[in-house]
């Protein structure tokens, strides 16, 4: 086990930030911590890194107790913090070299690692730039490079794509996959469900410091009652069609507003063909028609009664 957390309780005054958290991260996986802002993701990471005191619980990393002076463990950990942690007076190259040098003493090896990190985050054209000259996306990439240049066995990433443009986000996510393929275990936090769905092999959903559910994305989606969501653009939907939809036992919920019909089927039922036949029988002119499978937001919605981004 790379990370093993048991019964972790962390309080800020009267607020319980982590409520008896249990967490296991296995070697070689990308483990996602998903939850809205304030759900306890960053607090959990800070506790795991032994930066924060906590009221109760145990934390092991690489099967050893994690403490502030566990330097041998720290040698194998790379961290990408939510806030960009670089020095404005150092160039892109110097920043990466500096932080890598805190882990790697050998100059030749460090030079190679720094170059690999630059390649990974695609900052080759910016190595002589100072951080203030970089865009938000490039700055985030630099932040990642500084955290992972020493090629640790465990990489902890705390919302590394916050306020990043889509191009940089894709670049970062691809980089994370490459790091994982190269052998790194990754603990990844985000409140962007799409990211977590895209890269994580297992996911833990947190809310108010409590674990809501843990599993693969398929396992998580399988826990909810809702299934496919079908959206059809159609003008002037007749009332008998609406009545027909309402009485369809496979449709859990539906809504028709502004010429758009949204029908949510219960899990395991595929009603797209039936629904299209119903429309065709009345010779209705259809616009766009599309089908979506349940997302982690749907899972979160059903489990907590609120949206992930609330």
């Amino acid at each position: 086990m790379v990370i093993r957390v048991r019964d972790l309780v962390k309080r800020y005054g009267n607020l319980t930030a982590l409520d008896h958290l249990d967490l296991d991260v296995q070697a070689g996986e990308i483990f996602g911590l998903l939850g809205p802002n304030g759900s306890g993701k960053t607090t959990a990471i800070h506790c795991i890194l032994s930066l924060l005191t906590f009221e109760q619980g145990t934390i092991d990393v690489f099967d050893c107790e994690m403490t502030p002076d566990a330097y041998e463990l720290k040698q194998n950990i790379g961290v990408v913090m939510q806030n960009v942690a670089v020095f404005d007076e150092l160039t892109v190259y110097d920043n990466i070299d500096y932080f890598c040098g805190l882990y790697i003493s050998d100059k030749a090896k460090r030079k190679q690692l720094v170059q690999e990190a630059i390649d990974l985050v695609a900052l080759n054209d910016f190595v002589k730039f100072y951080p203030k000259k970089l865009s938000g996306g490039l700055l985030r990439r630099l932040n990642i490079a500084c955290g992972i240049a020493h090629q640790p066995r465990l990489i902890i990433m705390d919302e590394p794509t916050v306020a990043v443009d889509p191009q940089s986000r894709n670049n970062i996510l691809e980089g994370i996959k490459k790091l994982n393929q190269a052998g790194a275990t990754i603990l990844y936090t985000s409140h962007y469900m799409e990211e977590v769905e895209q890269i994580c092999s297992r996911i833990m959903i947190l809310d108010k410091g409590r674990v809501i559910r843990t599993g693969t994305k398929e396992e998580l989606k399988a826990t909810i009652s809702l299934g496919e969501k079908i959206t059809i653009e159609v003008e002037n939907l007749p009332s008998h069609i609406l009545e027909n939809i309402k009485t369809n036992p496979h449709i859990a919920t539906f809504d028709y507003d502004d010429h758009v019909l949204v029908a949510r089927f219960i899990r395991g039922e595929n009603g797209l063909v039936d629904l299209l036949e119903l429309m065709n029988s009345s010779h209705l002119q259809l616009g766009r028609v599309y089908s979506e499978l349940p997302t982690l937001n749907d899972v979160f919605l059903e489990l907590t009664g609120k949206e992930l981004r609330d």
């Binding site: 720290k74 805190l102 882990y103």
Partner: peptide
């Protein structure tokens, strides 16, 4: 924070 998690 980054300094605190480095092995120094």
């Amino acid at each position: 924070a980054r300094a605190s998690i480095a092995p120094v």
